[in-house]
């Protein structure tokens, strides 16, 4: 809604600082200042910690305290990053990204769809419950060899691995969410004669938007885990492949660079989902 009055988070930058107002009590002023100082301290400490870590890593490497051949160093990682073309890092990134997003999409849609199916039929969900629990706790990476034999060594095996790892969690999370929808809301819909499909569309699913995004956030991370595990096993390209390759030829700069890119990718993908969540929630509220 356009005309609602609300302060967006971080809106302090646009509004005059509350500290500048004359009509607040000294106690309030002290309180506000303390909050502001605490926030600044946290932000500075976070960046400082990273810089300190990088500084000592670099220093240690240069002074010979640590062996930069096995530990690499920030400057060597930077150099590797800048010589992207030689290592085809961008290509490897795209491969991993493509596989992760494919696995994520299939895992998310498939998981939600299965959860809907299980919600529909209480009998089915009771019958399948122990199997889901076992599948959930089973380390899916153990299925690697089987998957490779079934679908062939290559991209397909990697995507299947990502789906195997991410889907079951989605099913369990979503089913749990669906089943814990406020029963009073369900009864309200039933008093108007809503059938099961209407109850789902109008009550159960919209009630669980935040459950959906919570499980998507887990899902994207797990898809990446699945893809890297898959790439370790079979691939000819991708960051997982690059890391394994780097390890085999003792090029630890490449391994470290791969890990750092992976971390950045994970953060960006996670952020994208948070952003999507905010868009959806804002779209339907305020």
């Amino acid at each position: 809604m356009k005309h609602s009055v609300s302060t967006p988070p971080g809106g302090i930058a646009f509004a005059p600082s509350p500290l500048a107002r004359a009509d607040i009590s000294p106690e309030r002023r002290v309180y506000l200042r303390r909050i502001q100082q605490e926030r600044q301290l946290i932000a500075i400490s976070r960046v400082g910690l990273l810089l300190l870590f990088l500084f000592f890593w670099e220093l240690g490497a240069r002074q010979g305290w640590i062996d930069s051949f096995i530990m690499s160093s920030p400057s060597r990682i930077l150099k590797t990053l800048f010589s992207l073309a030689d290592n085809h890092i961008v290509m490897h990134m795209w491969v991993t990204l493509y596989e992760t997003l494919t696995g994520f999409t299939i895992g998310a849609f498939g998981g939600v769809l299965l959860a809907v199916l299980l919600w529909q039929s209480e009998l089915l969900s009771k019958v399948l419950e122990p199997y889901l629990v076992v599948l959930n706790s089973l380390p899916k990476i153990a299925l690697g060899p089987v998957i490779i034999i079934w679908v062939g060594a290559g991209t397909r095996a990697i995507v299947v691995m990502a789906v195997a790892i991410s889907m079951i969690v989605t099913v369990l999370e979503m089913l749990e969410g669906f089943n814990s929808t406020d029963p009073e809301l369900l009864k309200m819909a039933q008093t108007f004669g809503a059938n099961r499909r209407q109850v789902f569309q109008k009550i159960v699913f919209p009630s669980n938007i935040s459950t959906l995004f919570a499980s998507l956030k887990i899902n994207i991370g797990l898809s990446l885990v699945g893809v890297i595990a898959g790439e370790f096993l079979v691939s000819k390209a991708g960051l997982g492949y690059l890391i394994v390759y780097g390890g085999q030829v003792f090029q630890l700069d490449l391994v470290m660079t791969g890990v750092i890119i992976l971390a950045l990718m994970a953060v960006v993908m996670y952020r994208c989902i948070t952003l999507m969540e905010r868009l959806v929630l804002n779209g339907r509220k305020k």
Binding site: E184, L185, M188, A189, T191, Q198, K285
Partner: peptide
């Protein structure tokens, strides 16, 4: 039928909430 709580759907505006019964029917 009126229940203990109002059971308005938080993600719908008042207008869309009021039309829910008609929508279901």
């Amino acid at each position: 039928y009126m229940l203990q709580r109002d059971n308005l759907l938080e993600w719908r505006t008042i207008y869309k909430n009021v039309l829910l019964g008609l929508e279901i029917r």
